[in-house]
Amino acid sequence: MNHFNSIDRLSLNQITTEKWSLKEAVDGCLRADVPWMALWRHKISEIGLRESKNIIKGSGIKISSVCRGGMFPATTAKLRQVAIDDNKRAVDEAAELGAEVLVLVCGPSAGKDISEGRKMVEEGIEELVPYAEERGIKLGIEPLHPMYAAERSVIVSLSEAVTLSEKFQAKQVGVVVDVFHVWWDHDLYNQINRAKGRILGFHISDWIVPTPDMLMGRGMMGDGVIELRRIRQAVEKAGYGGPIEVEIFNQKIWDTPGDEVLALMKERYLEHV
């Protein structure tokens, strides 16, 4: 199949409609017939876990993931434990809300020693795995673009993420493929193939040229240079048939009425993905 003729797998990642509350986003998805949503923890905390669960439970919307756990590296053992405790809360939230996957944005190094930061990430995941497994939650390591290494994640390639995930059982730890972060990789398709059986999520947007902003510069599908369909087909060939999340950080899109964003998102998904 070269392209979609339905939106059965389409998921609104909440950050794409950042100005909407959880309730507004759920209602928007229902109006647009978008069947899936990915939840962000700051949106859950705005109204609390119980109210979030009530909204989701009564809506019929399916939850593709909760974002985010991670941020493991820290300067002291005490602060590392704070990060682990927060990750356990994130696992609990994912379990309560019916998600199967907690997305891990693993965090920057606590100092200048990036290899030590990577070691802390591995140790953090190792500590979190038994807790997550007990609650039926899989941990999805999302490699970020290398430009985020100092601020958001020391895991900066799909190869690195797969290697890290392979230290654990596939039923517990896998990877999340976000096109914005991995499209540039000369070895991308080999690494997607290598991730077979471990792909827990697939995120889409586009890379605009010129890039307007390092964080807030993602584009709507079709507005940039990413070979979306080819990547999607590779991910499917590697065994992933789950929801496809549209995750866009872009102030212009955030300032656009949510219903318009969802209408455009559906149109571009069918056309380009």
Rank of each mutant, 00 (worst) to 15 (best):
M1W: 10
F4A: 03
S6I: 04
I7Y: 04
N13A: 15
I15Q: 04
I15T: 00
T16Q: 08
T17A: 09
E18D: 09
K19E: 09
S21F: 12
K23Q: 15
V26L: 10
G28A: 13
L30K: 13
L30W: 10
R31T: 06
V34E: 09
M37D: 11
M37H: 13
L39A: 09
R41F: 11
H42N: 14
K43H: 13
K43A: 11
K43G: 00
I44F: 05
K53Y: 12
N54H: 15
I55N: 06
I55Q: 03
I55R: 06
G58P: 11
G60E: 09
G60K: 14
I61A: 00
K62Y: 14
K62N: 07
S64P: 04
C67W: 10
R68H: 13
F72M: 00
K78C: 03
Q81F: 03
V82R: 14
V82Q: 02
V82N: 06
D85T: 03
N87C: 02
N87V: 06
K88N: 05
R89F: 05
E93H: 07
E96G: 13
E100K: 14
V101R: 09
S109C: 06
A110G: 05
G111Y: 06
K112A: 02
K112L: 10
K112F: 12
D113E: 12
I114T: 10
R118Q: 13
K119R: 08
M120L: 04
M120A: 12
I125P: 09
E126Y: 03
E126D: 08
L128G: 11
Y131G: 00
A132L: 01
E133C: 12
E134H: 00
E134D: 15
E134N: 06
G136E: 03
G136F: 12
K138S: 11
G140W: 05
G140V: 04
I141A: 01
P143R: 11
H145C: 09
S153K: 08
S153T: 05
I155D: 07
S157F: 12
A161R: 01
V162P: 13
T163E: 15
F168V: 02
Q169S: 04
Q169A: 14
A170D: 01
K171L: 02
V175D: 15
V177M: 06
D178Y: 02
F180A: 15
V182L: 13
D185W: 12
H186E: 13
Q191P: 08
I192Q: 06
I199W: 08
F202H: 11
H203F: 08
S205C: 15
P210W: 06
P212C: 11
P212N: 07
D213F: 04
M214P: 00
M216P: 00
R218Q: 08
G219E: 01
G224V: 04
I226G: 09
E227P: 00
R229I: 07
R230H: 00
Q233P: 04
A234P: 00
V235E: 11
E236T: 11
A238G: 08
A238S: 13
Y240G: 15
Y240P: 04
Y240I: 03
P243W: 15
P243A: 14
V246N: 04
N250D: 09
N250T: 14
N250K: 14
Q251W: 13
K252H: 12
W254M: 01
T256R: 07
P257F: 13
G258D: 07
L264P: 01
K266S: 10
Y269R: 10
L270R: 12
